[in-house]
Design a protein around this nucleic acid. Structure first.
Lengths: 210, 210
DNA sequence: GCAGAAATGGACCCGCAAGTCCAAAGCACG
DNA sequence: CGTGCTTTGGACTTGCGGGTCCATTTCTGC
């Protein structure tokens, strides 16, 4: 079913997705008309329906996937290298900085609340994003456990779940309060508890087997 | 500008709000047409615009306020009486139970993401809700500090902010995963850290390195 | 029971934006 | 170069749904 796309066609398609994503980030899903996308990307209605035969729904899905990928990309290379406390702090800083800059214009907002209802596939995209996100955090915790920086009895999955929840909620609250206070508090308290855990365990230890 | 409302009128108005709220919870804001509300509440278009002269926007605002109040009411009397560890646990249980039952049908979803864009006032409603919510938590922490159950050097505002973020994120994740794992993890880890704090106080120095 | 106001019903209007259609232009490759 | 595709442009259709309007009924106070 993949239609033959020439290089030119592919470029146009990408331009549409990127433009639509920008527009949506700026003004919200249900404020963006196909006409806006056309104007903003210099395309015609014929093109839109040529590249997205199922219309708006298909376009929105493509945008959602694009934005989901972007969310994780924006955290790299920190997110994939949570291998020391400075690395964790750098990641924390990047997150706060990114969302502070972004302010109210949140892709997640559109992704989950709005796109979610219309396109059934959007749900899957969000779930996938969260899954990848949490996985990266779990990896980080496990690695820190392997170096003895985090106590081995810490439940990596559980803490990662709580941390991810804190981040999501922090961003959500950023949307209504305009402040990053909640995000920072959630990040700091969770990370602190991870650090404290290593000490409290008492035995500063290397660990290879379990 | 409060129009004179007879008892009957007031009842009708309330019926509209409650019916619209239910409908929206069930199917999402932008899937609900005025016509659906009419059918579901047994009212006519004339009535809708009689009680909500500004149309859908005004109705949505009323629904938002209604739902926001409900969110807090559902946590009572626990939320206002976080005066012992059993009380905290009861509150935790109520939250999890409530959201588990509610599943995907989340008023917040509609409130923030969707209503938020359209109605400027909706933002204020959400902010108000969060403010009241967090305040109640702060009160709880302060009370526990006054009884010595929580260490006095705990920053109540900060922990409450983190906890609220965890809850919101947990609910958000419930929407895409269908599981309450994140919500429970966030609640438990934060509450645990509050309990642990009491014991550790004095012996364990807080790290404040930079 | 009789003003006057509130409550109700529902027909109608109207604009908007998604989606359709086709004709024309561009391009690829033999 | 010419055949058949992808690509592009834009006019047109269409349905949906919010909002308007007014006629009718019901209620309230006197």
């Amino acid at each position: 079913m993949t239609r033959a796309l020439t290089r030119k066609g592919e470029a146009t398609r990408a331009r549409i997705v990127a433009g639509a994503a920008a527009e949506i980030r700026e003004r919200g899903v249900d404020e963006v008309r196909l006409e806006d996308v056309m104007a903003h990307t210099g395309t015609s209605k014929g093109q839109l329906f040529h590249y997205f035969p199922d219309g708006k729904e298909e376009l929105l899905l493509a945008v959602a996937q694009h934005e989901a990928d972007q969310v994780l990309l924006d955290q790299e290379p920190m997110l994939s290298n949570l291998t020391s406390w400075p690395a964790w702090l750098a990641w924390r800083a990047r997150l706060v900085e990114r969302y502070r800059a972004q302010g109210v214009k949140c892709p997640l907002n559109g992704l989950l609340g709005q796109t979610g209802r219309r396109a059934p596939g959007a749900q899957a995209i969000v779930t996938g994003l969260m899954w990848r996100w949490q996985n990266a955090i779990v990896e980080g915790i496990r690695h820190m456990q392997s170096t003895g920086d985090i106590a081995p009895d810490v439940d990596a999955d559980r803490v990662a779940a709580a941390l991810l929840a804190g981040i999501q909620g922090g961003v959500l609250l950023l949307l209504s309060t305009g402040k990053t206070d909640h995000l920072e508090a959630a990040l700091d308290l969770t990370i602190d508890s991870l650090r404290a855990g290593a000490r409290v365990v008492g035995t500063q230890r290397r660990h290879s087997d379990d």
